[in-house]
Design a protein around this nucleic acid. Structure first.
Lengths: 166, 166
DNA sequence: CGGCATCCTTAGGGATACTG
DNA sequence: CAGTATCCCTAAGGATGCCG
C-alpha cells in the first residue's frame, strides 16, 4: 500500500514549492500554532463559553487563556457575546463563529488519531452519532461523493483559479 | 444552527474532565505539538524521504529538522530505511509508517480549512481524487456510514471499554 | 467573576561551523 | 550528503498580584 500521495507534474520536488507557494496548513499555524489554542478550541466545542470555564477545563493559566481568547476572537474563530442573566450584571461569553465551527473536522481527526494510536485500551472520549449511536470518524471524500483512498489522492497546484461570480 | 457539540450526562462541566481523563488530542500534542513536526509530516506525505529534501522544502534549519526526524522516528510515525543506489554508498530514507500515514485526514482537514478561510482567492494546493478529478475534503461520518452534521454529534465517555478479543 | 500587568523559566528554533 | 555541536534569540507559558 502506498503511503505517499501522488504528485502531479508541476509540483515536483524541484519546483521550489516550499517557498513560492503558501501552504494553507502553514498559514493556519499563524492562527492555531500553539497547543493552548487547540485546547481552547476543544473546550469551545465541548460547550465552554465563560472565561473561567476555559481556564478550569484546559488547565492553562489565566494570562495565557486571556491572550488566546483575544487572539482567537481577533481571528474570527470565536466571538465575544455579552449576556446577562436576570438580576446579574453583564458578562462575556465566547462563542464559536462559523469559521471556528468549521474546525471541527480537524479536531475530530486529531482525536480519532490519538484514540487509535495513543490509547489502545485506556479511558477515552467517545464521539457518537446521536441518531444511531455509532462512533464518528473523519473520512476523505471527493466532492463527487466517492470515498478516496490514499493512493487515489492527487496533489496539484491551481495557481490562478477564477473567482466565483457573485 | 448549533455550533457546539451535544454533551452526554457524565461529561458535564463539573465532572473534572479536564484533569481526570486524558484527552487523545492533548496526548497527541506530546508527539505532534510543534509547527515543524507538521511541516515534516506534510513533506513526508508529499513524498520527501531524504534529509535534505525535508530541510529544503520545509525551510527549517538542519538541527531542528534532525531533531524532529529523530523524534518522529522514535514515536513510530516515520521509519528510517537504509537504501543504496547502484554505485553509491548507503543512505538513509525516512518513510511513513502506518501510524504516520494515518495522520493524513488530520492534514487534509487542516489544508481544507486553511484553503477555505485563509485563501479566498489566491494560489492554492489542490487535492483531487485521481479517478474523477473532483476536490477532496474530509467529512464526518459514523461507522454506520451516515454523514454526521454537527448537531447530531454527541460526546460521551467510555471509561472502561473491554478490549477486543484477539 | 473576568480579566490585565509583571516577572520569570523553559522550549522552540535559527545561524554558523564542523564531521563521518 | 547527512547530519552534530555550539551559541544565542525569541516565543510560549506559569505564578503571582492587582483591578473593574
Amino acid at each position: 500500500m502506498s503511503t505517499t500521495i501522488q504528485m502531479s507534474e508541476e509540483l515536483g520536488p524541484r519546483s521550489g514549492w516550499g517557498k513560492a507557494i503558501e501552504c494553507p496548513m502553514a498559514s493556519m499555524f499563524e492562527i492555531l500554532g500553539t497547543k493552548t489554542s487547540y485546547l481552547i478550541m476543544r473546550e469551545a466545542f465541548y460547550g465552554a463559553t465563560r472565561f473561567e470555564e476555559f481556564v478550569e477545563r484546559t488547565g492553562i493559566s489565566e494570562p495565557v487563556a486571556a491572550a488566546r481568547l483575544r487572539e482567537l476572537t481577533a481571528e474570527g474563530l470565536l466571538e465575544k457575546v455579552p449576556y446577562r442573566e436576570p438580576g446579574q450584571r453583564t458578562r462575556s461569553a465566547y462563542e464559536l463563529t462559523e469559521k471556528g465551527s468549521d474546525l471541527l473536522p480537524v479536531l475530530v481527526a486529531m482525536m480519532r488519531w490519538g484514540d487509535r494510536w495513543l490509547f489502545t485500551n485506556g479511558a477515552r472520549v467517545e464521539l457518537t452519532h446521536a441518531d444511531c449511536g455509532a462512533q464518528v470518524h473523519t473520512e476523505l471524500r471527493c466532492d463527487a461523493g466517492h470515498p478516496v483512498p490514499t493512493d487515489e489522492l492527487e496533489l496539484g497546484l491551481n495557481p490562478r483559479r477564477l473567482r466565483a461570480a457573485r
